[in-house]
Design a binder for these strands. Structure first.
Length: 555
RNA sequence: GCCCCCGUAGCUCAGGGGAUAGAGCACUGCCCUCCGGAGGCAGGGGCGCAGGUUCGAAUCCUGCCGGGGGCACCA
């Protein structure tokens, strides 16, 4: 029985009590069921009585007794105690716990999914680094977290589009083109130009396409066009080898040709938040909490970057997305309010249609010293560098296992060391161990059982119970992580609950052995444990998949 | 000056109002040594400070202190 299933039973108990006139409250839409820290407090606990006491006008413990009386009759519940200020501590029947393993194996790759976002189209825009150089380590964090979040939203039933906004319209592209041209000619980097070693390499790639380029009058323009192509190929390839594939590469430049800018201006005017002042066209974002109004069209007639933002947002909504998710670095936090105000100015609900997530920066440490990252200076740590140092799995896991609210110290030396100090190895190793045992069973000729025919009440060891409860939490972890946009919750759960539980169980080599020794016969308990190992492997696979990390058969 | 994030164990970090605040690394002592020793168990040590809300605060609110990032008719 999972926490959510028990929650439903608790609600039913409350509803029955209300029906019988024992409680005068509204049945809550959701009740919190969690695993108590102390083993003395049963398998699961709920604070429902504490929450209902005020509305019921009665002491919490009294409410608890009423609910407990009903809950004791629920299927799979062995005992219910009222404890402390009014907690309900529930002990499950062994069989009810064992059924978790059956459910997990029966659901397979689908275990953990939910349909909370069914019918919702979500646009997840992330990375979107300037196409003037390789993806640097800050972008790598978003690649790892953004893709994991996209996977989580999909696991919650959403229709997700991964989108990369290509800033191909600004003066930085002029500088980029000029830098490539200078490098191709063997001239020094122009002032404000890009100076990394990659500039020379990419300039060569452009020349390979059009060898006579340097003699042509439109050389600079060609370097702009072809340089952008080379940059995008590089970026796309690097991200793809990182396991991140975007559905849409959206060109900022294309907004101008498509009429999207005009449509956005029309829509904003219709909503009545556009005005002219000092010869410029402004959007009155202060109507919706921004600290100042923003210019859309400058007094010289050209559009601002914010105008592109507006056109891009309106375009996304026109493409049918219910939720437009933006993942930005901390250096863009000032955009949050104006983007939300923009959505409101367009007549949308800034609480629903737009979400801006801010991720703190990554500090890269090497030899205990911070590594300065700068595209302009060229001393950069790129996505490829990180993958080369750690492997894609370790990098993705490490970057996705911390809250994006925290600045992350990525210690190159530590991540380079491929030891158990890196948590991904711990989790992957548990998955590998599960695979190894399943393989061993196959080699002994023990077939994996039909889940429905296993006597799961044989999984009676306390450590087996702990592991079963850990597996039962997975759907709730997935739903919560998706709802809060916090993929790191999945990683922490895998580490602390599943991998840990599996390792502890494995260590009970005498009492919880899976494979019979020597010529010992295969008994039902062995089969039941085999099922639990399969369930464990399934949750580790499903969880790692959500993070874009592999679950190897062997390491 | 204003805005955003952070402050939890020696270090790196979890903790979406609940019971005795958790992991990993490091340190100390054990266990398994024949399903993979890349493992397990135990111990020491912690919520920046001050108020407030609440039956209950690491969590929510206010102020202060400390660290990081940011303010544009740049892109």
């Amino acid at each position: 029985m999972t926490p959510d299933q028990l929650g439903a039973a608790v609600r039913a108990a409350v509803a029955a009590a209300v029906e019988a006139g024992e409680l005068a409250v509204e049945v809550p839409a959701e009740v919190a069921v969690e695993r108590p820290r102390s083993k003395d407090h049963g398998d699961y606990a709920t604070n429902v009585a504490l929450k209902l006491a005020k509305a019921a006008g009665r002491p919490p413990r009294e409410v608890a007794e009423v609910v407990a009386a009903r809950l004791r009759a629920a299927d799979g519940v062995a005992a219910v105690d009222v404890a402390g200020p009014g907690f309900l501590n529930v002990r499950l029947a062994e069989e009810a716990l064992g059924r978790v393993a059956v459910e997990v194996v029966a659901a397979g790759a689908g275990y953990g999914r939910n349909d909370a976002l069914a019918g919702t189209a979500v646009n997840v825009e992330f990375v979107s680094a300037n196409p003037t150089g390789p993806i640097h380590v800050g972008g790598v964090r978003w690649a790892a977290v953004g893709d994991a979040l996209a996977r989580l939203l999909e696991a919650s039933g959403a229709r997700v589009t991964r989108e990369y906004y290509v800033n191909d319209a600004g003066v930085q592209i002029d500088r980029f083109a000029a830098s490539l041209l200078a490098a191709a000619k063997g001239e020094p980097t122009p002032e404000d130009g890009y100076a990394g070693a990659y500039v020379g390499e990419w300039a060569q790639r452009v020349l390979e396409r059009e060898p006579d380029l340097l003699e042509r009058a439109d050389a600079l323009e060609r370097f702009r066009v072809l340089g952008l192509q080379v940059a995008l190929e590089e970026i796309r390839g690097a991200l793809s080898s990182f396991g991140v594939d975007f559905d849409v590469w959206f060109s900022e430049l294309s907004l101008k040709g498509s009429g999207a800018v005009e449509r956005a201006l029309d829509r904003l005017r219709e909503q009545g938040h556009v005005y002219e002042s000092d010869g410029a066209v402004w959007l009155r974002t202060t109507d919706f909490g921004d600290d100042k109004d923003r210019v859309l069209v400058k007094s010289d007639g050209s559009g601002t970057y914010f105008l592109s933002d507006a056109a891009y947002y309106v375009d996304k909504r026109e493409r049918g997305f219910d939720v437009c998710l933006y993942m930005l670095g901390a250096d863009h936090h000032g955009y949050v309010r104006r983007l939300q105000a923009l959505a409101a100015c367009a007549g949308d609900d800034p609480e629903k249609n737009i979400e801006v997530l801010i991720g703190q920066l990554v500090n890269v440490l090497k030899d205990g010293e911070p590594v300065r990252m700068s595209k302009r200076a060229g001393n950069i740590l790129t996505l490829e560098d990180v993958v080369e140092l750690t492997g894609a799995d370790a990098a993705r896991y490490t970057l996705a296992r911390s809250s994006t609210d925290s600045t992350l110290d990525l210690d190159v030396d530590l991540v380079t060391r491929q030891t158990s100090e890196n948590p991904v190895f711990y989790v992957q190793y548990a998955a590998t161990r599960a695979a190894s045992i399943l393989r061993g069973a196959a080699e002994l000729g023990i077939a994996e059982p039909d889940p429905a025919e296993v006597d799961v009440s044989l999984l009676a060891h306390p450590i087996e119970g702990e592991l079963l409860k850990a597996l039962a939490e997975f759907p709730h972890v997935v739903a919560t992580a998706a709802q809060l946009r916090e993929p790191h919750r999945v990683a922490r759960y895998l580490e602390e609950k599943v991998a840990k539980g599996a390792q502890r169980w494995f260590d009970e080599k005498v009492e919880c052995r899976v494979l019979p020794r020597g010529d010992d016969p295969v008994e039902p308990v062995h089969v039941a444990r085999l099922l639990l190992w399969r369930a464990t492997r399934t949750v580790l696979e499903n969880g790692l998949r959500l993070l874009g990390v592999s679950a190897p058969e062997r390491m």
